[in-house]
Design a protein around this nucleic acid. Structure first.
Length: 426
RNA sequence: GGAGAGAUGGCUGAGUGGCUGAAAGCGAUCGCCUGCUAAGCGAUUGUACGCCCCAAAAGGUGUACCGGGGGUUCGAAUCCCCCUCUCUCCGCCA
């Protein structure tokens, strides 16, 4: 969430920034309500002050066996007045809170204006599109022909958008997870964590999934628990409500988790294959940083994610999301899009964001400055490093051979127990 | 699932209605002292919000916060109710 004081003092700016995102938000109503809140607060605090002072006096009188009944009677009135003002205050704060919690983050100044995904500028590209002397197949055909991806049985076991992996397909997924974790822990300096795969509503609110995007989540019936839609939720909330020392920043965490998404509103989109599943695996990078360095950290994090594709030798491009395509909590996001020859398109395989203090303010993630001892909100960042299922797609489509087999990229061979080619088991 | 015990500041841990934002100790920071180190001495050491002041920082002042929510009371860390979490024992279990 945004800083209430910032919104209060920058009503026009905030409104303009939200319009750039394509959202018309009634910021002036917020401002009015905030003024009301402060008016009530001033009055109720003055009354409390009176009550505190007089109550001490009552205590003193009683101790001396003097009569305090007049004061007690008066304070009874003051107390009931406080009580009613408190209710007003609570209502106002609840409304105010509801409003601020659904206002998205302010885009960073470097984010270009645009209405949607088509307006995202390409920042850089790496590698080249592979050439084939045959018609490259989409991964769903490759996977089914090899017998490693079983969409029909996934649907039978659970439903649409669930997939069963067989044999070397399952091993490829596992190999990628391990390869990514090893790369980020050993070469990029991240600490590996294995968090819970469910998170409560408090955590979900901290990272911004709630209250606005509940329909995207799977909730466990009869509990306050949700299946995590990304490791961002449990890992960012590691430091929920904490004050960390400046000397410990930046913190780098990497986590493997499955991710569960309801994909409400994506009906008919990417219905075939692994691209859009209700359950998929992801290796996630999460950083906590000082405000001054968070944009440097975003660049580094994005390069860390890109390194996975470089080592797999898969062509990709990196785009910077424009204002209209930016996620709710993010101030700036780079998407890495891998080339998928079977689909003849670049597909998002990673999304790397700087949330600045937006999540930190919601989740109460702060740090204590070394010199002054002051506390301030940390900046949080995260990025996929990478989405594993989509990386399987990229490997299958980029490394497919004319005979239907798939060459295993060199870096993965050790993780595949020496297997260098996936051939049909049929 | 059954029975019980707990939750207090960075940590340990006092505190059963007013003099407690909170003893004491530890830790930390600053200063003093001592050839160095260690020890010692002194001071400081929570967060949020409001108001005043202000260019800002600093400062002043008020309110709230002793797991969360509600209640009793002139007044609650302290009494009552509900919830959450932690621990111990029993049962079950990968």
């Amino acid at each position: 969430m945004l800083d209430m004081k910032f919104v209060r003092d920058n009503v026009d700016l905030v409104r303009r920034k939200m319009l750039e995102r394509g959202q018309d938000i009634d910021v002036s109503r917020f401002s009015t309500l905030d003024q009301k809140r402060r008016d009530i607060l001033r009055e109720v605090e003055a009354l409390r002050n009176e009550r505190n002072t007089v109550s001490k006096e009552i205590g003193r009188l009683k101790k001396n066996k003097e009569d305090a009944s007049l004061l007690i009677e008066r304070m009874g009135e003051v107390s009931s007045r406080i009580k009613s003002l408190d209710e007003d205050l609570k209502d106002t704060e609840t409304t105010l809170n509801e409003m601020i919690m659904i206002i998205p983050n302010v885009p960073h100044e470097s984010v270009v204006y645009g209405e949607g995904a088509d307006d995202n500028p390409v920042i850089r590209t790496w590698g080249e599109k592979p050439s084939f002397d045959f018609e490259p197949k989409p991964h769903w055909d490759i996977g089914e022909d090899l017998g490693i991806l079983d969409f029909a049985r996934g649907a039978k076991i659970t439903g649409a958008r669930f997939t069963l992996y067989w044999g070397l397909g399952a091993r490829l997924e596992r190999a990628l997870i391990n390869f990514m974790l090893d790369l980020h822990t050993m070469d990029h300096g991240y600490t590996e964590v294995l968090p819970p795969f469910m998170a409560n509503s408090h955590s979900m609110t901290g990272t911004g999934q709630l209250p606005k995007f509940e329909e995207d989540l799977f909730k466990v019936e009869g509990t306050d628990y949700y299946l995590v839609p990304t490791a961002e939720v449990p890992v960012t909330n590691i430091h929920n409500g904490e004050i960390v020392d400046e000397k410990d920043l930046p913190l780098y965490y990497v986590a493997y988790t499955p991710c569960f998404r309801a994909e409400a509103g994506s009906y008919g989109k990417d219905t075939r294959g692994l691209i859009r599943q209700h359950q998929f695996n992801k290796v996630e990078l999460v950083k906590f940083s000082k405000p001054e360095t968070s944009y440097d950290e975003l660049e580094k994090l994005t390069l860390n994610a890109e390194e996975v594709l470089k080592r797999l030798n898969i062509h990709y491009q990196t785009v910077s999301l424009c204002t209209g395509d930016l996620g709710f909590s993010s101030a700036k996001t780079y998407d890495i899009e891998a080339w998928m020859p079977g689909q003849g398109a670049y597909r998002e395989i990673s999304s790397c964001s700087n949330f600045e203090d937006f999540q930190a303010r919601r989740a109460g993630i702060r740090y204590r400055k070394e010199g002054s001892g002051k506390v301030d909100f940390a900046h949080t960042l995260n990025g996929s490093g990478l989405a594993v299922g989509r990386t399987v797609v990229a490997v299958l489509e980029n490394y497919q051979q004319k005979d239907g087999s798939v060459i295993v990229p060199d870096v993965l061979i050790p993780y595949m127990n020496g297997v260098d080619r996936i051939t049909s088991v049929k």
